[in-house]
Design a protein around this nucleic acid. Structure first.
Length: 417
RNA sequence: GUGGCUAUAGCUCAGUUUGGUUAGAGCGCCAGGUUGUGGCCCUGGAGGCCGAGGGUUCAAGUCCCUCUAGCCACCCCA
């Protein structure tokens, strides 16, 4: 059997590339406007980094990572998300010693060994933003305004911001306790998964999809009742600032996040268009992460958007299909030689110029020019070469006018530039 | 990782139930219909070890097994 791509890894073919370039370019513009600087970090990190930051008990670390030993026996992992690497770089280069807050973005591939589905690949790509060293609600709101703005300029409608606060190390334990005591006498009616969740991460029971569990969870205590005054105030401020910025959102007291390091503000960008893979992005505050990695206490917040999932929600646009400014249809050996020279001269001026690769009929060349969506076609045969002028055809209108050949480079370069 | 569905031309899919001579369609591609003029239309052509491997049978695209990949749901998550 012919060699094929590794499972869950996809080629991006030329027709799809313009959409990706549009997404990335639009994101870079938005990130720049909001004051984010680019950081590029390696795809490989020591396994320990993810184990410590994401949490040993999470599915990501326990069963979804691409982990292997390199030739010197070190355990390395292909990053399953961007935050850990950015946090590591932040510490390693002591960016905390320079004035913050540090607003960083990075774009690139992530890897998770999951069963692939549409919109869920083993190599997938994210747009990622992090604000390090700022605890204030303004950063939370800024990030959400940025995400909301980016979705709008990308033309992605039908995405809703779903918002919650997960509390902090001060108040979350009491909420967990309240949950545990609520579920205590109902364990028998919960599904097997939920019984495991009860032990590992009780918050997860809240968003189980089993009907029975949903019913039971409906009566569970809400985290909002457990927020400490600081968390409550912080969340109020975030909501107030979102209101000022005109960003709409939905509150979901049952929204939880899978990664251990999240605190306070947590959010997802959800759509109904992608089936079960309903999140195009998500993020939240992770005030404890940097310290957990051995750094100084550094509050931070970040979010990531999945490029594949965004791409599924964006229609192709006609302007991405633009063709060459000029196609030279040359007939015969000498005209082709002349056309090659003219095409190269025009290309060096920055114009997209094409000609047929082989000496085929004019009809075939015209067809090809049309397929390529060429704006104009210059038709050059032996006679034109002798006469020093050739018909230039405008493909949209069909009009043809003669153009002196010795002026072609200057005339077209001036007109096309 | 678990369960289900699927795999036939470059693409989207018929044909599989009831095994039987050269495996089809639409779109796309190439050519012709004009000695050198695109799109629309007409005509013709190229292109398939029917996902891979094994088995049953006189005979397998069609039935059975294994593998691989895709899709859907779960787990989890962007």
């Amino acid at each position: 059997m012919a060699i094929q791509a590794v499972r869950g890894m996809k080629d991006l073919l030329p027709p799809e590339a313009p959409k990706w370039r549009f997404i990335e370019a639009t994101a870079r513009e938005a990130f720049a406007a909001f004051g984010f600087s680019e950081i590029r970090v390696p795809i490989l990190e020591r396994t320990e980094l993810f184990a410590r930051s994401i949490g040993e008990e999470t599915d990501i670390v326990s069963k979804e990572m691409y982990t292997f030993e390199d030739r010197s026996g070190d355990s390395l992992t292909m990053r399953p998300e961007a935050t850990a690497g950015v946090a590591r770089a932040f510490l390693e280069h002591k960016l905390h010693a320079t004035p913050g807050p540090h607003k960083l973005f990075t774009i690139g591939p992530m890897f998770r060994h999951e069963r692939p589905q549409k919109g869920r690949l083993r190599q997938f790509h994210q747009l990622d933003c992090e604000v390090l060293d700022d605890a204030g609600p303004q950063s939370d709101a800024e990030l959400l305004v940025l995400a909301d703005h980016l979705l709008k300029v990308l033309g992605v409608a039908k995405v809703q911001i779903v918002l919650n606060s997960l509390g902090c190390p001060e108040c979350r334990p009491s909420f967990k306790q309240a949950l545990l005591s609520y579920f205590q006498d109902k364990q028998g009616r919960l599904c097997d998964d939920c019984n495991k969740r009860l032990a590992n991460n009780p918050l997860r029971v809240l968003d189980c999809k089993q009907e029975d569990c949903k019913e039971i969870a409906a009566g569970a205590p809400l985290i909002s009742a457990s927020w400490c005054p600081d968390c409550s105030e912080h969340f109020d401020q975030v909501k107030r600032l979102l209101g000022l910025a005109g960003v709409s959102y939905a509150l979901d007291p049952k929204l939880v996040r899978g990664l251990d390091y999240y605190t306070r503000t947590a959010f997802e960008l959800k759509t109904g268009e992608l089936g079960a893979q309903d999140a195009v992005g998500g993020g939240g505050r992770y005030d404890g992460l940097i310290q957990a990695l051995g750094g100084p206490a550094t509050p931070a917040i970040g979010f990531a958007l999945g490029i594949e999932r965004l791409a599924l929600l964006i229609e192709d646009r006609p302007e991405w299909q633009s063709g060459p400014a000029l196609f030279i249809a040359a007939l015969g050996e000498e005209p082709r030689a002349w056309a090659f020279g003219a095409a190269c001269a025009l290309r060096k001026k920055g114009l997209w110029v094409e000609m047929s690769a082989s000496d085929v009929s004019l009809k075939a060349q015209m067809r090809r020019a049309n397929k390529m969506n060429a704006a104009q076609v210059l038709i050059v045969g032996g006679e034109e070469l002798k006469a020093g002028a050739a018909p230039l055809k405008d493909m949209a209108s069909g009009d043809q006018t003669d153009l002196p050949l010795d002026e072609i480079v200057t005339r077209l370069a001036a007109a096309g530039a």
